[in-house]
């Protein structure tokens, strides 16, 4: 069991059949997440293949995280929150300049965590793709309007993922303070591999 501090990154190799549990300890905390096939990291999570395979943009119990080769990487076997985002991507210093102004460039961001954690596994900039945002709430209105709105998560909610093959997972405990995805106050999360 590991507690990932607010704003920090984490990564691990998870064997086929093992589970990863992600607990939102204090509530309203987005957890950015990428997953790669350990056997060939060019095969990695595909948000687009995942949502077209299940016909729904939200992830919850039963959702299968598909690879870019349309193979299952992980399955959500338990979810006490209800729904999670996979279209909003990760915050970066660069996209922060667009959304919130050039003055936010020095702030920490999820892409920084992904790059630092990915480097431990030989993964680099080219390996970053659209990710999962556990506990993040991104509804799409009828006209396509999309916003990162107040979280629907609360303290102690959890997501349990089962690895379908050996996988490498990268996690960024989201440091964003310019929108409500972390309640403007990033907090720790607990991760458990079993």
């Amino acid at each position: 069991m590991t507690v990932v501090a607010a704003n920090a990154g984490w990564s691990a190799l998870i064997g086929a059949g093992q589970t990863l549990t992600i607990v939102d300890l204090e509530g309203n905390q987005a957890v950015d997440f990428l997953v790669y096939s350990a056997a060939d990291t060019a095969e990695r999570y595909s948000a687009q293949d995942t949502i077209t395979a299940q016909g729904n943009i939200f992830l919850t119990t039963g959702s299968v995280l598909m690879s870019n080769e349309r193979n299952p990487l992980m399955t959500v076997v338990e979810d006490t929150c209800g729904r999670h985002d996979t279209i909003g991507g990760a915050c970066s210093k660069e996209s922060n300049t667009l959304r919130y102004g050039h003055h936010t460039r020095p702030q920490h961001a999820c892409v920084e965590n992904f790059l630092a954690e990915g480097a431990k596994w030989g993964l680099g900039k080219r390996d970053l793709v659209s990710n999962v945002n556990w506990y993040m709430n991104v509804p799409v209105e009828q006209d396509g309007t999309l916003g990162i709105v107040d979280g629907i998560s609360s303290p102690g909610l959890k997501v349990v993922l089962r690895a379908e093959v050996d996988v490498i997972v990268l996690v960024s405990n989201c440091p964003q303070v310019n929108n409500p995805c972390n309640g403007f106050n990033p907090t720790p999360v607990r991760l458990e591999v079993a």
Binding site: G89, S95, D143, G144, L146, G147
Partner: peptide, 25 residues
């Protein structure tokens, strides 16, 4: 091309006038 930044920065999933890279350009 970063489709997530493209939809997020323009606040719309169905269209916008800019196709954005992952470097905010």
């Amino acid at each position: 091309l970063n489709v997530a930044d493209t939809v997020k920065v323009q606040w719309n999933a169905y269209g916008g006038h800019l196709l954005l890279s992952d470097q905010g350009r």
